[in-house]
Design a protein around this nucleic acid. Sequence first.
DNA 1: CTTGACCTTAAAGTTGACTTGAAGGTTATC
DNA 2: GATAACCTTCAAGTCAACTTTAAGGTCAAG
Lengths: 135, 135
Amino acid sequence: MQTLSIGELAERSGVASQAIRYYEKEKLMPAPERTEANYRRYPLDAVARLQFIVHAKQWGFTLDEIRELLILQDANGDRAQAKRIAAEKLHKIREQIKHLSRIEAVLSKTLDECAGEGPMQEGCPIVEAIAEQGE
Amino acid sequence: MQTLSIGELAERSGVASQAIRYYEKEKLMPAPERTEANYRRYPLDAVARLQFIVHAKQWGFTLDEIRELLILQDANGDRAQAKRIAAEKLHKIREQIKHLSRIEAVLSKTLDECAGEGPMQEGCPIVEAIAEQGE
DNA sequence: CTTGACCTTAAAGTTGACTTGAAGGTTATC
DNA sequence: GATAACCTTCAAGTCAACTTTAAGGTCAAG
């Protein structure tokens, strides 16, 4: 069976060697076999596992959440739990979108109203909008 | 003229004393007068300045950006610069919304498709959706 | 047989926005 | 006049997710 050194795994997965060691310490990656000289040797499917981590991160999952999902996979866990984790994340994401959208609305309205000319003296609409409410 | 101790200011503004000292160190709050015993005494309008900071933070401005805005105010600076800072922030917020919306779309679709039953064995749609693309 | 590229560990540094702790001075109250 | 509730400074700790540094072992090439 072909195996990979940590450097080769890093290259194939796009994840730095040190980050891979960090994931091992954080129990996201299982501790791999070692050579006689104590070098890590990874099975080929380690690449897929790392890419799962990378993708989940891009989706906004934290390492803690990703660990939960990986444990479920490893343990052949309950699908309902995976659904719960994802549903919680979806809820958080929707909250974030709501929050940002409120800001976007006020900020873009404010920018439209502001000519962007003259000194700040009294009544720069941008500054006033922030000072007044801000949420 | 009435002045406030740092504790009174903290209470009125809802910002912890230590955070106020931190803002002073970071040049968001000006260094106030001191009593003979070296205690800080704040003018009443320090409350409004702190609330500006709090609101701007809620809007997602970083302390660096808030400092820029405050410097503009303090210097009676150019309104066009305030507009530029706000426009940059608006752009970043829109990017964040776009990013989150893409995630939201895929995640909610995935959750709809997943019955949330049975073991993870092969083909939990949530795990697969993350593994496959992730952006 | 030496140079350099790779590997090992453990510890410290990074970023942002603070919080917590240590060690001590001041002021208000009993 | 002592106790508690303030205030002072400076340093260190927190969180996440790493990166950087240090000090050293291993392996392939020439």
